[in-house]
Design a protein around this nucleic acid. Structure first.
Length: 414
DNA sequence: TGTCCACAGGAAATACGGGGGT
DNA sequence: ACCCCCGTATTTCCTGTGGACA
């Protein structure tokens, strides 16, 4: 085909895609891809629907002293992942600073995101960067100097300073040092009115703190409940309007996704993920999103979860899984005993040049796989023929085959 | 009723590895 | 750079167990 024709053909295909598409704006199905103003727009709509109303009210009353020139105390926020802690706080603090500006109250807030773990030094360095107090260091500067940088930078700021510290329990090693700096030292060294907002998904993190630091840490507490089905429906509707062609979403779909998500975890991100997957599947099939599309999408997400779980698992666990699959194929009965599985495991390790572990650990590996629901095992007694674990693979055959293939192709198994 | 199978799974011993101090 | 220490992974050792079978 000559180039010009190819070009018109592709162009018409694209045109077609644009018109027939279910997904209008893919980015609204994934928060990572949204720029800040878009995120806020989404939030605006969600909060207008009274979702997270209680929490916003709590926050408002906590920060109300700001307008009376008082000093609010620190606040700890707890809640599971996907309950919108970060987003709600970002939204709220933006709102707060707007109001403060209107009333000429000097305020500043920074968001220190520790969603992946890092040592005290990194956390401090990141904080310093956010405050424009220093450049990024790999090493070569002591904690002390870093703290001085921060203090110096803030030495002439007299307004409110709000530090939103996300996933604070991710500070490894000398967590005490980090908190102590924020709670005890910093407020004394700088004139600003410091308010810490400490976000975490573990209720028990202050328990590991040095008691001396802990006693200084006067906290107000706020817990984010998981979203319920109604909240999730609001959230999903907003996304459908922004990201999809609403006509392509059949009645009941949103309700179904919301119900599934709230029953399982109440995690909004996962709910939106399910919506995204459904939309993707429907688009591929050229149909609207129906209830059965959602079921299919949920199934695929489940499959993906199993596969990634296994992919990221330690080699020995993979080997154990592969051995169970092999043993299951060989015996052609649905159940296998620990002994057979262990034999298969040794054989597998021999072939692939892995050092086999003892039967004792192998038993623990099986228990772990059971925990992950990758297989099912129960202990039975066969009388004088001994006691053993009865291992069953009751996952769909297709999934088992994919898992097996994935393990074999793993680069760590040479 | 006692025996004995074929493991489970707890406890202690030991090997390993990585971080922190010097 | 080196070593030491400590937490974790693994091994070793051992006791316990439910029920078929004689």
């Amino acid at each position: 085909m000559e180039p010009a024709k190819v070009r018109t053909k592709i162009a018409s295909q694209i045109q077609h895609m644009v018109h027939s598409t279910i997904v209008r704006n893919k980015r609204f199905l994934d928060d990572e891809q949204l720029i800040r103003s878009e995120q806020l727009a989404v939030l605006e709509e969600i909060f207008n629907a009274n979702v997270r109303d209680v929490e916003i009210k709590e926050l408002s009353s906590h920060f109300a002293p700001v307008f009376r020139n008082d000093h609010p105390c620190h606040i700890a926020i707890w809640g599971k992942t996907g309950t919108g802690k970060t987003l709600t706080l970002t939204y709220f603090l933006n709102l707060l600073s707007e109001m403060c500006q209107a009333q000429k109250v000097p305020i500043r807030w920074v968001h220190l995101d520790l969603s992946n773990p890092r040592p005290c030094f990194r956390a401090l360095n990141d904080l310093a960067c956010l405050l424009n107090a220093s450049k990024r260091y790999e090493k070569g500067i002591s904690l002390e100097e870093m703290m001085l940088h921060i203090e110096e930078k803030l030495s002439d700021y007299r307004g409110y300073l709000i530090l939103l510290i996300d996933e604070i329990d991710n500070v490894r090693h000398d967590k005490n040092n980090f908190i102590a700096f924020l709670v005890r030292r910093l407020p004394q060294q700088i004139p600003a009115k410091l308010v810490l907002v400490l976000v975490s998904n573990r209720l028990d993190w202050p328990d590991h703190l040095d008691p001396r630091v802990k006693s200084f840490l006067k906290l107000n507490e706020l817990v984010f409940e998981p979203y319920d089905a109604i909240d999730l429906q609001h959230i999903l509707r907003t996304r459908v309007e922004k990201a999809l062609n609403p006509e392509a979403v059949e009645a009941g779909v949103i309700e179904k996704i919301a119900a599934m998500a709230s029953r399982e975890h109440g995690d909004a991100r996962k709910a939106v993920g399910l919506l995204a997957k459904s939309a993707y599947l429907a688009e591929k099939a050229g149909s609207a999103i129906t209830i059965s599309t959602v079921d299919q999408a949920a199934g695929e997400l489940q499959t993906d979860r199993y596969l990634t779980l296994l992919r990221t698992a330690p080699t020995q666990l993979q080997a154990a899984m592969a051995a169970v699959i092999e043993a299951g194929r060989k015996s052609r009965k649905s159940v296998i005993g620990t002994g057979q599985a262990y034999d298969a495991y040794r054989e597998f390790c021999g072939k692939r040049n892995i050092r086999p572990l003892t039967a004792r650990v192998f038993g623990d590996l099986i228990a772990e796989l059971d925990l992950y629901c990758l297989l099912r095992s129960r202990i039975i007694s066969r009388g004088r023929y001994g006691r053993t674990r009865e291992i069953t693979l009751d996952l769909p055959q297709e999934l088992v085959d994919r898992m097996y293939g994935m393990i074999l192709s793993d680069s760590r198994l040479s």
